[in-house]
Amino acid sequence: MFLSLTPTLAFAISTLLVLSAITQQMPTTTVPATSATTAPNQVSTAATSWKIDDTHSMVLFRVQHFGAGMFWGRFDGVTGSISTSGNPMQTLTMNVTIDTNSVSSANENLDGHLRSPDFFSVKEFPTMTFVSASAKKINGDMWEVTGDLTMHGVTKIITTNVEMTGQSESARGKKIGFETTFTIDRSQFGMTYGIEKNSIGKSVRIIVALEAESP
């Protein structure tokens, strides 16, 4: 009886051993791309969604005043989402919304003028948005991002180089940072006040600094 069962038992044991060995050799596909436990040379394609941290993100702008000095202002209300995939990062998409009412020049009276229809017309256009359409990795942490910038009711396609400034994971969660600088012609967005009399420049340099966190 015992002897007759021996071949069956031996086959079952050997089958279990083989299955166990196969299972251990299989790659892990459920580990997030940004996980610190991922091996450095291991490529992952899992997507990570990031929420832009309003407190630690800002948009600065710079425009020439009366052909002389540079006037600086900022927007504090920056929200939106970023999506990345891979480690190192393989894809990047951005959806950024800026609250135009959050414009600040450190002078309350000037802020009132900036909010008026002479400039951002915040009651009419309460937000500015940037929605990326494509992103191409240039080298290292530099990306060439193309997307739709909507400002003052006008949408234009812009292309800008975006740098991923850093990525970390701590007790406060996973964080990622981006920065870009680009220049727009504000008259193309219908914001023409002061151009003809040369009191406010036509070109506006915009610096966007984003910090986002993954839930």
Partner: peptide
């Protein structure tokens, strides 16, 4: 209501 007003340009 507010003492003065400045304009940008």
């Amino acid at each position: 209501a507010f003492n003065s007003s400045e304009r940008l340009g």
